[in-house]
Design a protein around this nucleic acid. Sequence first.
DNA 1: TCGTGTGAACGAATTCACAGCG
DNA 2: CGCTGTGAATTCGTTCACACGA
Lengths: 175, 175
Amino acid sequence: MEGVKTISSQGLAHLSGVTSAQVRKDLSYFGNFGKRGLGYLVARLKKEIRLILGLNRRWKVALVGAGNIGSALFSYKEFRRQGFYFAAVFDVSAERVGQRLRDLHILNVDSLKTETERLGIEIGVIAVPARAAQSVADRMVQAGMRGILNLAVELESLSFSIKALNGRPARRARR
Amino acid sequence: MEGVKTISSQGLAHLSGVTSAQVRKDLSYFGNFGKRGLGYLVARLKKEIRLILGLNRRWKVALVGAGNIGSALFSYKEFRRQGFYFAAVFDVSAERVGQRLRDLHILNVDSLKTETERLGIEIGVIAVPARAAQSVADRMVQAGMRGILNLAVELESLSFSIKALNGRPARRARR
DNA sequence: TCGTGTGAACGAATTCACAGCG
DNA sequence: CGCTGTGAATTCGTTCACACGA
């Protein structure tokens, strides 16, 4: 794929496993950057997609939950490479508050709103046990965050998609 | 919500943010466990859902990638609580192979197939950099795993869903 | 000529709305 | 009478197929 200057909707379809018509419809939704009789310029396409996904800018992120999953994401280079960087870390646990995660002090989650406003944080990442996730999400909305990413929910939907591959066939509904 | 014995499709709709008709259709797909004029018995519903999601059994899981994300998931109690337990851990890195992750030796990923068969592993978890994920997935299929969970892909789709909440409005396609 | 962009046809999923059971 | 379960109506998304520009 290296050195290819241009790619057709069919080529993209082949790579991604969807139909070429789908590729064209989806891309045309964001603008007309294909060239008729030619296809899409790979370099242009790459740039447009980064723009569409918001990967052309850096997002200030707050992490709530400095346990295993939270700490791991904090150290996960890919995540930073995508343009998300951690401006603050919060936790509820008295023993964790005051500790550090790399260069950041772990703050009490009660200061979420003030810190969010002070630092201009836009996105919250929830890495707490599933049962606590909802109340954290509520606080984040309160604090004015524009995006929330809930790792607990993600993990639950994962177990579901695994089941979908495996399950005893579901009893068919009457029709 | 504690102590509630029964819940209507409307109640569930309100909690989950979908329509009540949707709730009823979805549940009826798996069987008829609602009571007319009453709603769904919470205890019954809980049991049925665990069954549907496959949370009533334990799944043997192999982890590939013993880096930050992999180690974190390995230590993440919720994941075990959902019935997934790690029977083996693999990595490519010569320095990691032979080390231990808690009670498990980190094995070379080349032994994936033999170990999968020997231990009866059913699900693979991929926790490697995104660029390496596809080849690991291929090996897992080769090894006969029935479900694959790719954390790299998950993290990518997360960044997308964040954007959906925030993005500058996309240019509308002509109609 | 090749391959996009897009109406039109089609199919799937959601919502409506109500018969019927508890 | 309240609320499920489910056909029918409707909406939404995908695929088809082709006019048109490069």
